[in-house]
Simulated scan of single mutants.
Amino acid sequence: MDFCNIEGLYQSFIKVIKVHHQYLHNILEKLDLYPGQPPLLFTLYKNDGQSQREIADKLHIKPATITVMLNRMEKAGLVTRRQDVEDQRISRVYLTEKGREKCEQLKNIMVDLNEHCFGNFTEEEKEVFKTLLEKMAENIEKVKDK
């Protein structure tokens, strides 16, 4: 594989990642959100009141990173933390009304982003593309810890 070839498959993949990241970053900046926050917001939107450990496990993020993210999001008024009523050692995280509003905005943005990304794909092409991306992830998972 020629990695110096700017027309190559790997370069095209990196270009898509870069363009997508820049586009999403610009949108999130307008909403006063950071790139890691939407998945956390959506996780709570689906199932409010999770523990920090549950969130970390679902998002595959270290608990310490979740703590930093939640501190920032709490200061922004997006989430609130409360002790579990049955086990005071557990802190549960809840969306605030502002956090719910951001989720609604994000849902609309993600619909638009999907349309921009895949609007001219057929359903069959979307399925093939999804399968190929999953296969790539599996390939990397197999060798990442070697």
Rank of each mutant, 00 (worst) to 15 (best):
I6M: 12
G8A: 15
Y10P: 00
Y10A: 12
S12V: 03
F13W: 09
I14H: 05
I14A: 11
K18E: 13
V19W: 04
H20D: 11
Y23D: 07
Y23V: 07
L24T: 09
H25K: 13
N26K: 10
N26Q: 13
N26D: 14
I27E: 08
I27G: 02
E29A: 10
E29T: 14
D32C: 08
D32S: 15
D32E: 14
Y34F: 13
P35A: 00
Q37W: 15
P38F: 03
P38T: 03
P38E: 00
P39G: 06
P39I: 01
L40V: 04
L40H: 03
F42H: 05
F42M: 14
Y45F: 15
K46N: 11
K46I: 01
K46H: 08
N47C: 09
I55G: 05
L59V: 02
L59E: 06
H60N: 10
I61T: 13
P63W: 01
T65K: 09
T67Q: 11
M69S: 09
M73A: 05
K75F: 08
G77Y: 05
G77F: 05
R81M: 10
E86M: 11
D87C: 04
Q88K: 12
S91G: 04
R92E: 03
V93Y: 03
V93S: 03
Y94N: 05
L95K: 07
E97C: 03
R100A: 03
R100S: 05
E101R: 10
K102N: 02
C103D: 04
L106A: 06
K107L: 14
K107S: 13
N108G: 15
I109Q: 13
M110F: 15
V111L: 08
L113P: 00
N114R: 08
H116P: 00
C117M: 15
F118V: 02
F121Y: 15
T122D: 02
E123C: 01
E124Q: 13
E127S: 12
K130N: 11
K130Y: 12
L133E: 06
L133R: 07
L133H: 06
K135T: 13
K135V: 01
